[in-house]
Design a binder for these strands. Sequence first.
DNA 1: TCTTCACTGCAGGTAAAGCC
DNA 2: GGCTTTACCTGCAGTGAAGA
Length: 235
Amino acid sequence: MKDLLSIRSYSTRPKEHAHSYNQLVLPLQGMINIRVGTFNGKVSPRECVIVRSNEMHLFTAEKEARFIVADLKKLPDLIEDSPHIVFEISKPLSQYLLFIESQLENEFSPAIEQAMLNTFKLLLCEQRLTPKLDIRINNALLYIEQNISEPIIISDLAKVACLSPTQFKKNFKKQLGITVLEYITSLRMKKAQALLTHTDYPLQIIAEQVGYTSLSAFSRKFSQYFGLSPTKFKQ
DNA sequence: TCTTCACTGCAGGTAAAGCC
DNA sequence: GGCTTTACCTGCAGTGAAGA
């Protein structure tokens, strides 16, 4: 058996089964009901289910559901050692799955498929392996990602999560282990790092792209976060 | 489990000065 | 000219306590 990426739709195999290889199930759209190990529940896009080799599992999916399945002889160490069965995937991996879907649907190219598999594994190694989150917190995370270049205030996030601001802040820290502001800042700094590395945008534009209306505030925060100013980082 | 309230500390905006 | 640093100020985030 060799490692393989494939697209699946709703299950035509609603029987409990196991196989000799590992499998990662990553929904693209719609919900999947899955029973594996101690987990028995729904999995949605931006989540990944780990099915280890020889582990009995059963899954069914909504008719409109589509998902990527990765059959792997060996799991990356990070995932192999993970105590979680379902974990959140990053935005880059989520978007890469859409590329994989498009490529697999439209072309047959063993060389590209091998390259896709390699990139997929690299992206897997970058995952933070945060456990499946409360849907309300997940909605807030999506809102943050979609609005990272705008000023983001807790009361708006709390509305998205259908919680009071205080309850939202407490739940957020309980589930992610960091405060809302720490999470937003880390996203902004990573994006700023990428823009500084891959573009020639002036600092004012980069500051705006990552949600700072004040260049000085951006420069100060960047220096605190990375230990050197944006200009020195670029050099 | 959740909301409200009060308190503290910090992040971010502004302005000004200085550096390259 | 573009960027960084710093001081000051304000508003908001974080958190604990009390209560529904």
